[in-house]
Design a protein around this nucleic acid. Structure first.
Lengths: 201, 201
DNA sequence: CCTACCGATCGGTAGG
DNA sequence: CCTACCGATCGGTAGG
């Protein structure tokens, strides 16, 4: 009756990605410092020593999560930045993309860990993230410049961009997936808040 | 040569307040979970067991810091809310007060701990904080209503208030005391960003 | 990827 | 408020 050990999974295992996902969720929920290796191992059905087969340190797991976060974010917003036919349309698409990553199921753990746990990286790892973040912010600065060029906003300064980032990133604190507002609606309302209602032609 | 033990301090010691201050600074810098009792004890010149003479648990220290944060914040903004002669003047005073607590030397550790570490409180402690927070937000909602009543903004909804809170609270991430902008300037620029430049009479 | 384990450190306490 | 300490837990490793 000894069964041959079956190839347990037809899909590729990719346990590393599983660990990154689980770590992201736990870092988001409990914070980096309060999350233990045992929490992460448990979440993917491993014993406590096994995650170290995939990552040298807990720090490296954080680094992987944060880089995944900034990568997804940049990709989504870059795609949106030239998607429309007007500065306002592009801007609204960027808002949707940013909020989609930040609040949506696929991205939120990575994005939230990026926003709130990056400080636990050490200086060189942080520098790596900051470099990506700078490129990200350039996209937004350009979007504001275009809006100003079209006469839709008065202030396209760096501080204005930081106010905007604050309004966006603070949504993490109050948005609830089962709440009364969709991501789409929030994006539209933020655009109206900053620009005013779109003019009917 | 045995000296009489002198009354070491003329000012009241108030070691409890010292602990709260040190805890606030460390919770802000390293986060609640990454801060140890020994860190806190060290910062106030005690041995590791002694903080427990003033607080039953590390949790209670967090609670004290967070309540101090919301208390200072509420007090400062409440004072500002009726300080001026116009809705715009009141609003700008509230912005200054909020940013002063959040970014200024006296309040920032408490305020930042309030914003970022409250989740480590347990449900009943958190409920206590949320009750204070609700009262705080009412002040801002009223300020927005007054601005709208004066025709200065178009949207005074709850979401608008959350966008505003985001722009304000995100300053923690980028403001530097030795940077190019004063708290005053940031407050004024945010007011202009939301309302537009003040009209000359 | 598991078993078995290590040294370090943690929050907290007893007794003074 | 200190001394001396405890049990639990932590990140990480050796050897398979």
């Amino acid at each position: 009756m000894a069964a041959l050990k079956s190839k347990a999974t037809t899909e590729e295992p990719n346990r590393r990605a599983d660990i990154v996902r689980a770590a992201g969720r736990l870092f988001h929920e409990k914070g980096y410092s309060a999350t233990t290796i045992r929490d992460i191992a448990n979440a993917v059905g491993m014993r406590s020593g096994s995650p170290f087969y995939h990552f040298k340190t807990k720090h490296d797991m954080l680094r992987a999560v944060v880089l995944e976060g900034i990568g997804k974010m940049t990709e989504a917003v870059a795609k949106a930045a030239n998607s429309g036919k007007s500065p306002r349309a592009n801007f609204e698409a960027m808002l949707r993309a940013h909020l989609g990553q930040l609040l949506g199921e696929q991205g939120r753990d990575f994005a939230a860990t990026l926003l709130h746990e990056s400080r636990h990286l050490d200086p060189q790892e942080l520098a790596e993230v900051v470099a990506f973040k700078d490129r990200y912010e350039v996209m937004w600065q350009k979007a504001l410049r275009d809006l100003k060029g079209a006469g839709l906003i008065a202030d396209d300064s760096q501080v204005a961009r930081l106010f905007l980032m604050g309004a966006l990133n603070w949504t993490v604190q109050w948005y609830r997936p089962d709440g009364p507002r969709t991501i789409e609606q929030i994006a539209r309302q933020l655009a109206s808040f900053l620009i005013g209602k779109p003019r009917r032609p």
